[in-house]
Structure formats: structure tokens, C-alpha cells
Design a protein around this nucleic acid. Structure first.
Length: 462
RNA sequence: GGCUAGGUGGCAGAGUGGUCAUGCAGCGGCCUGCAAAGCCGCGUACAGCGGUUCGAUUCCGCUCCUAGCCUCCA
């Protein structure tokens, strides 16, 4: 029985889809005006994991993750570059797709873009005006009247009156109330714009997600996710817009992932302490190391980004691949281990616990190998592989993975093989001095040897 | 100031009212020509102070500390 922590109630609750066997989920994706960083990678990875697990449970999942391809940041950056805003957004959306593919993320079933939903956005805004929840300000911005929606603040636990008194926002004189937020922005000269009943303009950020999610999934769906920084005001505003426009409940379960931190601070563009996925990947043996690192702590908690931890993740993953190596895969999946794994995942996607179970399986494989029990080793490997498939790890060919290096390779596979042949001859002749000299030479070149019974030697890159 | 998460062994990180997390690193042993890998074993962990309890790291209260949100943000 799957339990999910619902941000709306603050509790873990049994997950029951609104329609039998079907899960409709929407995740706030990227605003693409730059390369994605590790913080974004965590969000992307967390929800990739969640949709994978839901599918593994047999649900027909519709995973929707939007792209914001028009907003202030994009316009600003494009202007700074002297580039067309749509070109910029297109360029970085393509880069994001590349990064996602590199990270092994499954593409969403639907990836709506804000600019493709202008019609729906205008229609929803009009509905909100018609129903009295929104108004046209004197500058032709359309604003949502927060006080018309009494349930405002339920998700973030904020009280409307606290917000008002604590508000540090410069009062926008177009707003009737400082809490109100914009649904449609009138265009200033030279800005990209679309025709609307309120003149040329562009959508506000919050309304996009309400329009896209309800257009694709219907007005009331199962799961809505995003980073915890979106809880307020973005998700709060989405709820207000959607509920008021559609007249139905909006989302059943809200999920928020924790941040990636750098030295105990949130990794973010504004703090300038971010690492792009592209630069980080250059320092790793394989993109899988980053995924494994991200999965090694619970999705709701914070995770500290550091090279030490990445190294630890690398070592641990290596250990799992070593267990898999030469263990065969033809065995039957062990139901008991699998049950333990699912139990961990059923508990609000507890990946650290699931990973611990995988370590247990790995030890069993190694024990079986040591005992010469090939059947048991193969069964363990099949089990480990099946678990890895659910998490999106361990699916590479073990030997190829182990021969991968961190950074550039200093010796080719052929050179290694040649030296190993020489060493083998030396060992056969009991010339251990020469044998050890070759080993030291290889070690210096980042090649680690492992002599097996019977004279064979395995190797991998450090 | 308001609201929300946290504070676990050298590092990372789950979890539990009384028996083991797990991984990395370290130490000892086995194996090995020697290594490596693996296996076996080891290490006074649960911020502080009270309370509930036969018993609390786990429940309750208070204190201290950290992060996040309250403004664009994954």
C-alpha cells in the first residue's frame, strides 16, 4: 500500500487515485533561460523516480511537466544577449532536453509550453473575471483578488492577514489589494505580446500552470509536484485560480521536493552558488553517479552538494556494479527481497531505505559468489537489477561501467591488455618483481587490478 | 516577526518506545605469491533540559542551533 506525504495536509496518507488504476500528475518544470543546475536536476530526478515507481505499481500514468517559455527572466536575458526571446527559450529548452536524456530521465508524456496555451490562459482569465474573482486594473493588467478566495493559504499554512502585515513587497498601485497577483500583464513597447480582450499582453506565471494542467489533465487530478520553493506563492495561486475558475477541487496530493544546498545554503541562481549539470557531469565517472547521489537521501529532505559526497556515491555505486559483475542475470527475482524493497518505496518513496535493501542483496550476491553458488548469485543479480530498473540505476553493463574513468583516460584498453599479458607471463614464471612492477605502473595510470583464481586478471579504472 | 522543515556515530543517511539500519572511511581476521575485490568481525550515535513510562534517540513540553518560505526561484 503506497503512502505519500501530502503537503496540503502535512501527513502521509494512503494513495488512492481518483480514477481506478490511473494516475494523472503534473509537475512544474523549467523556465528555460539558462542551463539547468543540480537543484533542478534533483526536482527532475525526484519526479522521474515517482512516475517510474507509480508505473511499476501498474498504474497508467500521465506525467505532465511543463516548460515556461515566456516570462520576465527570458525577456531580460534575451535583451541582454541581443537575442530573440523565443530563440533563447528554444535554445535552452533543447539544452534541458539533452541534459535530461543524459541523466537518464524518462520524458514526460506531455510537455506543454506556455506559449502554446495562450488561448486557454486567456479563457481561464476571462472566466475568473466573469465569476468576479479577477479584475482589470487601470493599467490593463488583470489581477486576481486573493481575498475573494477564503481558502487562500491552506497549502502553505499562511494566513492572509499575516501575509498582509508581513508583506515586504512594494505596493503596486495597480493592485486593489497588495496580496493580489497578476494573471495577465499588459505589454510594454517592444515586449513580446499576444492579443487579448484586455489588449496586447502576456500571461502571468501562475495562470500558465493552472491553464496547462487543467487543459491536459482535467480540472481535478491526482498529483501535483514541484520544488518546495513553489509552495508559496505559486502553488497557492494555482489552487486559487483553478478552484475559482473550474469550480471543482484541483489537486488531490501535493508533493514538494527539498532543496540541494551548498554549504548549508540553498543552491540558487540568485546566490550564485549553483553548479550546472553540464559542469558537474564532467567531473563524474558517469551521469548515473549524480542520480545515485540524488536518490541517496529522501526527496523531501535537504541534500548537501559536495564533491566528497559525490565521491562517496561513486564508490557505493561501484560496489553495486562489482556485485553484479559476473553474477549472471538468468536467476529468478527473490520475492522476499523485492517485497522489502517495495515496502520501502511504498513508504513515501523512501529511496535511502530501498538502497539499503539493495545493499543487502549485493552482500548476498557476494556471499554466494564466495561460496561458489552460481544459482543464488544469479538470482541475487536478477533481483538487484529489477530493483535498479525501478529506480533507474544499475542498468549498464557492469564491466563496461567499471572500466569507465573519472575524467579523461590515461591508457587505452588495448595498452592495458598488453601490459596484463606481460604481467601474466611474469607471474607464470614466478617473476613477482616484474609482475609487481607492471602492476605499479598500471596503478599509477589509474588502473586497478584484481587477480582471480586460475591466473586471470580483471581490471577497472579508478 | 509569522509559517514550515530539520538537528543521528569520522562522513553521508534511514529508522524505531526495550533486539541489526545501510553505505563510505577506519581497525582486526580470512582469502591472496603480495595486492585488489570479497567475506567475517569491531567501534560509549541519536542537540540540551525537564516530563510521561518498568524503559525514550524514538512520545510531550521548553531551550538552543540550522535551513526554507513570507519577493522571481526546482
Amino acid at each position: 500500500m503506497l503512502k505519500i506525504h501530502n503537503s496540503l495536509t502535512g501527513e502521509k496518507q494512503e494513495f488512492k487515485p481518483l480514477r481506478p488504476n490511473e494516475v494523472r500528475m503534473y509537475v512544474c518544470g523549467m523556465t528555460n533561460y539558462d542551463y539547468i543546475h543540480v537543484g533542478h536536476a534533483r526536482m527532475l530526478t525526484v519526479f522521474d523516480l515517482i512516475q517510474r515507481y507509480l508505473r511499476s505499481l501498474g498504474y497508467a500514468v500521465t506525467y505532465v511537466r511543463n516548460v515556461t517559455d515566456i516570462d520576465d527572466k527570458i525577456i531580460e536575458r534575451a535583451a541582454a544577449n541581443g537575442e530573440n526571446w523565443a530563440d533563447l527559450a528554444g535554445r535552452f529548452t533543447a539544452a534541458m532536453h539533452e541534459d535530461c536524456a543524459t541523466l537518464g530521465l524518462q520524458p514526460p508524456d506531455v510537455e506543454p509550453r506556455a506559449t502554446q496555451y495562450i488561448g486557454q490562459i486567456i479563457a481561464m482569465t476571462q472566466t475568473l473575471i466573469d465569476k468576479g474573482f479577477a479584475y482589470v486594473a487601470h493599467n490593463n493588467d488583470v489581477m486576481f483578488s486573493v481575498r475573494k478566495f477564503p481558502a487562500y493559504g491552506l497549502l502553505s499554512g499562511k494566513k492572509i492577514d499575516d501575509l498582509r502585515s508581513g508583506s515586504r513587497v512594494q505596493v503596486d498601485d495597480a493592485k486593489l489589494d497588495p496580496l493580489d497577483f497578476v494573471l495577465w500583464k499588459h505589454a510594454k513597447p517592444g515586449e513580446p505580446s499576444w492579443a487579448s480582450p484586455w489588449g496586447e499582453g502576456r500571461p502571468g506565471w501562475h495562470i500558465e500552470c493552472s491553464a496547462m494542467s487543467t487543459s491536459v489533465l482535467g480540472s481535478y487530478f491526482d498529483l501535483h509536484g514541484g520544488g518546495e520553493d513553489l509552495k508559496f506563492p505559486h502553488h497557492e495561486n494555482e489552487i486559487a485560480q483553478s478552484v475559482c475558475a473550474c469550480g471543482t477541487p484541483f489537486v488531490n496530493v501535493w508533493m514538494h521536493n527539498g532543496f540541494v544546498r551548498v554549504n548549508d545554503e540553498k543552491m540558487s541562481k540568485s546566490l550564485g552558488n549553483f553548479f550546472t549539470v553540464r559542469e558537474v557531469l564532467k567531473t563524474l565517472r558517469d551521469p548515473e553517479v549524480l542520480r545515485f547521489f540524488l536518490l541517496s537521501s529522501h526527496y523531501r529532505g535537504p541534500i548537501n552538494y559536495s564533491s566528497v559526497q559525490l565521491t562517496q556515491a561513486d564508490e557505493t555505486l561501484l560496489g553495486l556494479y562489482r556485485a553484479l559483475k559476473e553474477a549472471g542475470t538468468s536467476g529468478a527475482v527473490n520475492a522476499e527481497w523485492m517485497g522489502q524493497f517495495r515496502e520501502a518505496m511504498d513508504d513515501d518513496f523512501n529511496t535511502p531505505e530501498a538502497l539499503a535493501t539493495m545493499q543487502g542483496v549485493a552482500r548476498e550476491i557476494n556471499q554466494a559468489k564466495a561460496a561458489g553458488d552460481a544459482l543464488k548469485a544469479a538470482g541475487g543479480a536478477a533481483t538487484l537489477l529489477a530493483m535498479g530498473a525501478v529506480l533507474g540505476v544499475l542498468q549498464q553493463e557492469p564491466d563496461a561501467y567499471l572500466k569507465r574513468s573519472v575524467g579523461s583516460q590515461t591508457v587505452s584498453d588495448a595498452d592495458v591488455d598488453a601490459l596484463l599479458a606481460a604481467r601474466k607471463a611474469a607471474r607464470a614464471a614466478k617473476d613477482f618483481g616484474e609482475s609487481d612492477r607492471i602492476r605499479a605502473q598500471l596503478t599509477a595510470a589509474g588502473i586497478l587490478l584484481e587477480d582471480r583464481p586460475g591466473g586471470a586478471t580483471q581490471w577497472r579504472r579508478a
